[in-house]
């Protein structure tokens, strides 16, 4: 879309303990509806949002992993995960709920700088 802004959602919070992950993802979906150029970077504890086999109903809340898989349905395909954050948590891409692009910390500064705006969780 002409004039669409490059917006990065920087997600660093783990899901479930607070509503930060849920509310940030809801904002990302709305940005998709508004046809903005949306990217998402899962970093630090935010990578836990990508883990497979989550079950939010046990906590009487929405399953964050399911909301993450909805992102491509809103044309949000630029999904990134921090390589170092995965490694620190003994995670590999096999453990994740959908395909994402792995980026090293060294590349993230430039990734961020290419954006018009960053939304924090």
């Amino acid at each position: 879309m002409n004039g669409a802004k490059k917006i990065l959602f920087l997600l660093r919070q783990p899901p479930y303990a607070t509503s930060h992950a849920l509310e940030a993802l809801e904002a990302a979906l709305v940005a998709g509806v508004f046809e903005q150029e949306v990217s998402v970077l899962f970093k630090d504890a935010g990578v836990w949002q990508l883990l497979s086999d989550q079950s939010g109903d046990v906590l009487a809340t929405r399953t964050i992993g399911k909301i993450v898989t909805a992102l491509p349905e809103y044309d949000i395909d630029s999904l990134y995960v921090c390589a170092e954050s995965l490694a620190e948590r003994h995670l590999t891409v096999q453990d994740l709920v959908l395909p994402v692009t792995v980026v090293s910390v060294a590349a993230q500064g430039d990734l961020i700088n290419a954006m018009n705006a960053v939304v924090n969780d």
């Binding site: 990065l8 920087l10 660093r12 700088n113 954006m115 018009n116 705006a117 960053v118």
Partner: peptide
Amino acid sequence: HQPIVSWR
């Protein structure tokens, strides 16, 4: 500067 990122 652009963009502006917050870290908590």
